[in-house]
Computed example of a mutant assay.
Amino acid sequence: MKNRKNIVSLLVVLILMVSTVALFTGCDHIYKQKLVGVWEVKKITVDGKSMEFPLDAMGSKTHTYVYFTADGKHGRAVKVTGAPVPAMEGLFKADDEVDYAIKGNKISIKTVLRKLPLS
């Protein structure tokens, strides 16, 4: 009976190990295939007015990133560091993905209001 418990315990541990490895390597592979690039935003200028990044507020820093996927989608993520409350720190997806197109050395990102050409 004791030998049977040891075998069952060993099988459970092996199944958990294989499942964990398959989960992390499989998801990472799919995610890397879809992701084309990530840029960290350092400065935004609209109508002659500029904003520098990362943003500093109450001792925390907010870094902003834009990412592009192989299927023509663009999204934004923010990373908060140094927050006074640990639950407020981390990497967060900021909004829904929108379409983008590349033509020459410009990227046109479709927004709710208009397309923004980036050089």
Rank of each mutant, 00 (worst) to 15 (best):
M1L: 06
R4I: 08
K5V: 12
L10D: 02
L11M: 10
V12E: 03
V12W: 00
L14M: 11
L14R: 04
L14Y: 05
I15V: 15
M17P: 01
V18N: 03
S19P: 08
T20V: 10
V21C: 01
A22T: 14
A22M: 12
T25S: 12
G26Y: 15
C27W: 12
Y31V: 15
Y31Q: 13
Y31L: 14
K32C: 06
Q33T: 13
Q33W: 04
K34G: 13
L35G: 05
G37K: 06
E40M: 10
E40A: 07
K43I: 09
T45A: 00
T45E: 11
V46S: 06
V46N: 09
D47M: 02
G48E: 06
G48I: 06
M51G: 01
E52D: 14
P54R: 06
L55K: 12
D56G: 01
G59K: 05
K61W: 05
H63S: 09
H63G: 01
Y65S: 04
V66M: 00
Y67A: 01
A70K: 09
G75S: 02
A77L: 01
A77K: 04
K79A: 07
K79Q: 15
P84T: 10
V85I: 13
V85A: 02
V85Q: 07
V85R: 07
P86V: 11
M88E: 14
E89Q: 14
G90Q: 08
G90W: 10
E97Q: 11
D99V: 10
Y100P: 12
I102H: 03
K103T: 15
G104R: 07
K106Y: 12
K110S: 12
V112S: 04
L113N: 08
L113Y: 05
L116Q: 11
P117T: 11
P117L: 08
L118Q: 12
S119K: 15
